[in-house]
Deep mutational scan, measured.
Amino acid sequence: IINNLKLIREKKKISQSELAALLEVSRQTINGIEKNKYNPSLQLALKIAYYLNTPLEDIFQW
């Protein structure tokens, strides 16, 4: 999986903590996703895309 979450999140000036709060997950979860240590569920990936107002395929590429 190619993961552009960190790049997109930083472009939008959103911290890991802010995104985690919006998604109701821990900051460690966001960190793990960004470091490719954790693959989000489809539901979480869709929520990330929604809150970042970015197409899912721009954030994650399988």
Results as ranks from 00 to 15, higher is better:
N31L: 11
N39A: 15
S41A: 05
E34A: 04
L56G: 02
K12R: 09
A45D: 01
Y38E: 09
S26I: 03
A20Q: 03
I59W: 02
G32Y: 15
E24N: 15
N4S: 06
Y38V: 14
F60D: 00
F60N: 00
K12I: 08
A21N: 12
N39I: 15
T29K: 08
W62I: 11
S15K: 09
A45N: 01
L5S: 02
K35R: 13
Q61A: 10
W62L: 13
E10L: 13
K12W: 05
I8D: 00
I2L: 14
N36V: 04
S26G: 07
I30W: 03
A49G: 05
G32Q: 15
W62H: 08
K47F: 04
A20F: 01
A21Q: 10
N39Q: 15
E34L: 04
K11L: 12
Y38Q: 09
Y51P: 01
Y51L: 10
E24D: 13
K47L: 08
I14L: 13
K35V: 10
I2E: 09
E34F: 03
I48D: 00
L44C: 05
L56V: 14
K11W: 08
R27N: 07
Q61S: 13
P40L: 09
I33K: 02
L19K: 00
G32R: 14
I59N: 01
P55H: 05
S15G: 07
T29R: 09
Q43E: 12
L46T: 09
R9C: 05
T54R: 04
A45H: 02
A20T: 02
N31F: 07
N39S: 14
G32C: 15
I14F: 09
Q16G: 04
S15A: 07
Y51K: 06
L7Y: 13
L46Q: 12
N31T: 08
R9S: 02
Y51G: 04
T29E: 09
W62T: 10
N53C: 11
Y50A: 08
I2C: 13
L22F: 14
E34W: 04
E24H: 15
I8V: 12
R9L: 05
Y51H: 11
K47W: 05
L22K: 12
N53S: 12
Y51W: 08
P55V: 05
L7W: 10
N39P: 14
K47H: 05
S17K: 13
I8F: 09
L46K: 11
L52E: 00
W62S: 08
K47I: 05
K13V: 06
Q16V: 13
E24I: 06
I59Q: 00
E57Y: 10
W62K: 06
R9K: 01
K35S: 14
K13Y: 09
L52M: 07
Q43M: 13
I59K: 00
K37L: 15
Q43C: 14
K47Y: 04
L22S: 09
I14E: 01
K11I: 10
K35H: 14
N36S: 10
